[in-house]
Design a protein around this nucleic acid. Sequence first.
DNA 1: CGCGCGATTGAGTAATTTCAAATCTAGTGG
DNA 2: CCACTAGATTTGAAATTACTCAATCGCGCG
Lengths: 187, 187
Amino acid sequence: MSIILKQHIDEISPLTDDEFAFVLSHFTVKKFKKHQYLIQEGDLVQNDYFVVSGLLKSSHTDARGKEHILQFAMENWWISDPQAYHNQTPATLYVNCLEDTETLAITLHNREKLCVEFRKMEYFFRKKTTAGYIAMQKRVLSLIGSDSKERYLQLIEQYPQFRRLPKTMIAAYLGITRETLSRFEAS
Amino acid sequence: MSIILKQHIDEISPLTDDEFAFVLSHFTVKKFKKHQYLIQEGDLVQNDYFVVSGLLKSSHTDARGKEHILQFAMENWWISDPQAYHNQTPATLYVNCLEDTETLAITLHNREKLCVEFRKMEYFFRKKTTAGYIAMQKRVLSLIGSDSKERYLQLIEQYPQFRRLPKTMIAAYLGITRETLSRFEAS
DNA sequence: CGCGCGATTGAGTAATTTCAAATCTAGTGG
DNA sequence: CCACTAGATTTGAAATTACTCAATCGCGCG
């Protein structure tokens, strides 16, 4: 099962089998059931999660009780509350499962230890974070520069997998209501 | 003048004077006049720029000719077209000066060389990028979760310095029209 | 069969945009 | 120091877009 993590790292920073075994020793397998929460608002966030299988989302619930979705995560993606994890402050996000999910979890302590002990992994995390930053900047551009219909079309073009998500959640990800989203598909 | 870069790095990864001299040798001083472009759409992006003094913005011009602002940069900030810089693909953004500006520029080649040669700087860039990712995620949350007036108030609370920017640009950063922004301040 | 949840549709309301015009302001040259 | 101009800001009115609230529809699952 952990082969998928190796392949994922290899794309940026190829490892020998021995090296990967060492890397893997810093992770722990964690499995969750549909609807289960990995992180709730206020929690101390122990882990960053690499998704081996399943489906999750991270979201924020605002003062009016509305949920806004920051991220979906499927196989090969990472998910957590990055701010709470990296700064070790209380979580402001929820992370929960839309399907039964298997993850490889790494604590901040082990992540930093791994970066110090093993150069290739510091390189991996640096590159991965850079790619994440670039993706986030694209999303900002889409949010400030495109109307909601364009954003929806861009989204399903970039991530066709997202078609299988409930539309209510797609809407919460795009920053529009489910009713507005529902009025698009017709065309 | 480069003392400000040292102080900036020291906040994350403290350096001795000798170490900093070594780091600095990887940068070149570049100065620009108000209205000058550092990067234009289609360019090969040579540098990431650390701002010593002055003021800049990065922006994208869409198919309708409208400008959307991704970032402002003042003293102590970094600016570039990250996607074009890190992937060495043609720029999709413009970066230009709102005031006369002094920068310390680093090529991707020198940045990577520096990371390999000098561990503390790889740590610095990794942490800096992580912080940038977290800030970007906050902005996404603000865009999908708050209406335009709330976003404006959040912005001037988080960055009071931005008050000195032309409102047209604040609007282009928030993803609203200048007319809409103009109708807020009254209250 | 019927429950429950997600998706859709309708009608009225609120927010935002567009287009146009008027007003203000900072910087320039005389 | 003043007049002038270009850019920025404000204001108005109509059109568009999105939201809210309420009702209905469709379907999978026990």
